[in-house]
Design a protein around this nucleic acid. Sequence first.
DNA 1: CTGTTAGCGCCTTCAC
DNA 2: GTGAAGGCGCTAACAG
Lengths: 337, 337
Amino acid sequence: MAHIKDVAKQAEVSVASVSRVLAGHPKVSETIRQRVLTAIQELGYRPDLAARRLRSRQTNTIGLIVSDIRNPFFTEVSRAVEDVAYQHHMRVILCNADEDAEKEALYLDLMRDENVRGVILSPTLVTLAGFHTSDYPFPIVLVDRCDQNTIADAVVLDNVDSAYRLTTHLIENGYRRNVFFYGTTSATGRQRREGYAAAMAAHGLESHAEPLPAIVERARAAARERLRRRPLPDALVASSGLILLGITEALREAQIHFPDPVTVVGFDDLPWTRLVEPGITVIAQPIYDIGRAAIELLLQRIAKPEQAVRRVVLRGQLIERGSSVNRNNPTGLVTAA
Amino acid sequence: MAHIKDVAKQAEVSVASVSRVLAGHPKVSETIRQRVLTAIQELGYRPDLAARRLRSRQTNTIGLIVSDIRNPFFTEVSRAVEDVAYQHHMRVILCNADEDAEKEALYLDLMRDENVRGVILSPTLVTLAGFHTSDYPFPIVLVDRCDQNTIADAVVLDNVDSAYRLTTHLIENGYRRNVFFYGTTSATGRQRREGYAAAMAAHGLESHAEPLPAIVERARAAARERLRRRPLPDALVASSGLILLGITEALREAQIHFPDPVTVVGFDDLPWTRLVEPGITVIAQPIYDIGRAAIELLLQRIAKPEQAVRRVVLRGQLIERGSSVNRNNPTGLVTAA
DNA sequence: CTGTTAGCGCCTTCAC
DNA sequence: GTGAAGGCGCTAACAG
């Protein structure tokens, strides 16, 4: 392995000149430039990142802390973050915190040890409470989860409004007894519940919101339980893709072929939601864009640490499928997506 | 930020002693040990990883290069790899190579620059051809994809056998005109095609294997095209979860409610395969175990560079669902999973 | 514009 | 058992 000294010797220049060429420094003569470049070629020299990082006190690394990469939402976010990061010659360290505030803190510490340039974080409610950017030696961008009071760069969906639109759509199509299943660990679940409750109230209907740990098994169990009770609801509403999956599994178990007597709608336009007959009505999130916006925001923040705090809100899109077919007019066809 | 010097001063010992305590060196007196530990506490000292890496010429980082993290198979592999890696205080750098051999080479170079301890790689056929571990300055474990001739640590499914069992199951249940859709970029697709072809031949049936780029859109298009031609096949067989999704979408488009007149089976027990009525028969891969085996193999190799090359082969499990119901005996019920 | 030099923070001989 | 000192490979002053 060749070192910078070897290159300097080979090119018959000083190590400083080599370093300057490497850094793309403007004030180097074309002669030296070429000599150095040739020497680098000949020796197959590659700078030692460890040395560079030690000396410059900077890494080209950012951290991404999500609850679970297996959640399709975060999978897609991660892909977007990595795409943009690598384009900017940044590495990404990915961490799964499992909705556990302690693990989040642990990984945040790890990020500090790694001396990352910044972090993208999808925090639990616990971490979000009393969250202050200034507690960390690096900038943080929140993704997917952020409440009104938190002062931090963030990229989120218009959760309240999307849930309001989804619920209103249900009600207008004749589904009135709607139960909302949402995750307790995130601000997102709460906000969506709020939108749901507002829509129900606006139509003089009573809210039934069931909080649960946002994993498939618990959602399935909760839905199963609810389906045993009478009277049956008209619709089950899921605040996330994972919960939607659990509910749909419970319906299948119970041999209920939605939309009758009970239907299901929810968040996240996952591939299978259009496959399950007659298709599930969902709020589609622009997930890749959410991830991209987050990493771009972080890169901007790194470049300009003093710029004003920004919150990017992206709009969810209602995609109507068979699961919310008009009950008042059963023959009214809905465009299948 | 406190440095090792500060700790030494505070504890009134030399930096060497601090370093020894940090390294858990056995020959340090309990007195000094305690003094150092206290000082570390008081100062909130954390060792500088960049300096440590420069000095020791070692990182605690491994690379994971897959085609696309959004492929649920690799999502799960990644989760397993990260879980085990973090337990061993290793970081993971994740790269998406998009089935592109050039990107694979690029990322492999990047891994070299990062001076990783090892790499887990899911190579394209191009990279696999002429692949030699000795070309890289770090150990590599192949995951999911490896051919018979390649001499390298690897963790794979029993692809040929699994495909053979899946196809035989189809045939025995009365599906004879079976078309196999498989990805062209990986060794895995080929091996599964082989198993399929062997099973067809064993029953005196003609093979129809359609190679395609292993992405949903292309699989959907290929299936759509095949469904336009006559005579219709009895079954479409997918060599991967992504292809299975594409085929299922095409069937839905064509308003074909499998298993009649055309059915679908394939690889990967994704959550939705049991949701789509009447359930899709699949080969379930123990994906998490595959990922775990890969990282464990890599860690062993790092610990013992000279140990014999290992290939771990995991068995796929046939899960019978409605999509392969017995045609000869239509009332014969299949256990729904 | 170019070269010399002093560290970045840590680990690890080497003496004692 | 402990301390002093050199150097990992590189960058950034500072001179020239």
